[in-house]
Design a protein around this nucleic acid. Structure first.
Length: 281
DNA sequence: CACGTCACCTGCGTGC
DNA sequence: TGCACGCAGGTGACGT
């Protein structure tokens, strides 16, 4: 489900107390229940339960699409993949609460004061880790697109070394962390690049614009609290700003040509055939 | 090594 | 209405 902006929105809601969200900062863990065993990557459920006890949440942040919860001793890490979501529940009555499980709940973390952090994940692709070193999980990720260390020159130099299609590269988390199908399509539209364009055919000028477009769509996505599509609604509004994603057959908002959809690496790719020309040398 | 394809899952919309 | 099919915000394993 979530890409960088959606994950960032969730991280902020876990970290910062909002009008309708509950921060877990400073809370002390008491117990964990894993309802779908594959949701837990490492360690074993017994080990997890033993190790998280009495650990305090010191911070919550993000690396790419991974949510990293800094505990007193270890790091509790979540990846929501396609359909995962995290919610924090207010403590109600202990006896009632321990029984309440919603459809698709896969893991429940209970704090000493009764609040609960719950992974809900219809498609069961989401994963959880408890590790001493977060690099064990996120170590191979590419640069953070919103960090200053991500520069147009570096992007150009890396593109030059790749001959895969630009759309596939943007989805490759080892190349760049955090982009998913929505934001890749939207960034390529802003950059006027055809999704099938080989990476090494992209010019310096185009790379500069692509760099700016990536930052623009991600920043706008975060500002709108991410996108809410399908039957899972999380309150974000970026879906109202889509130029091409899921707009197949609808007029381009710039030139009114009809948006096309092709499949690249098993993923639907949406683009304007006129604004996003395929360059042949 | 680099790149493409498949497996892992459930639910929803569409068309017959 | 029922059912088959295609589609969905991702990624690791495997093949060429």
């Amino acid at each position: 489900m979530p890409e960088l902006p959606e994950v960032e929105t969730i991280v902020r809601s876990l970290r910062d107390r909002g009008s309708n969200s509950l921060s877990i900062l400073g809370h002390t863990l008491k117990d964990a229940q894993i309802l779908w065993s594959h949701s837990l990557s490492i360690p074993s459920e017994a080990e997890l339960q033993k190790r998280i006890q009495k650990q305090i949440v010191n911070d919550v942040n993000r690396r790419g699409k991974y949510i990293i919860i800094h505990l007193s001793e270890n790091y509790l890490i979540f990846h929501l993949r396609m359909s995962g979501d995290l919610r924090v529940e207010q403590a109600i009555n202990d006896h009632i609460q321990s029984i309440i499980v919603q459809k698709h709940d896969r893991a429940i973390f209970t704090f000493t004061d009764g609040i609960r952090l719950i992974l809900n994940d219809p498609r069961k692709f989401g994963r959880i880790w408890l590790v001493d070193d977060p690099n064990l999980v996120t170590g191979k990720l590419g640069p953070e697109p919103l960090d200053e260390s991500f520069t147009p020159i570096d992007l150009y130099n890396k593109l030059k070394k790749k001959q895969s299609r630009i759309k596939s590269l943007l989805l490759d988390q080892h190349f760049l962390a955090g982009m998913g199908n929505i934001y890749s399509d939207e960034a390529l539209f802003l950059a006027k690049l055809h999704p099938l364009q080989p990476a090494n055919s992209i010019t310096m000028d185009q790379a500069i614009i692509l760099h700016r477009s990536i930052i623009q769509v991600l920043t706008e996505g975060i500002r709108k609290n991410g996108a809410s599509i399908d039957w899972v609604y999380r309150g974000g509004g970026f879906q109202h700003s889509f130029n091409v994603y899921q707009r197949t057959g609808k007029p381009c908002l710039i030139c009114e040509s009809l948006i096309e959809r092709i499949v690249i690496g098993q993923r639907g790719s949406h683009y304007c055939p006129v604004c996003q020309k395929f360059y042949q040398e």
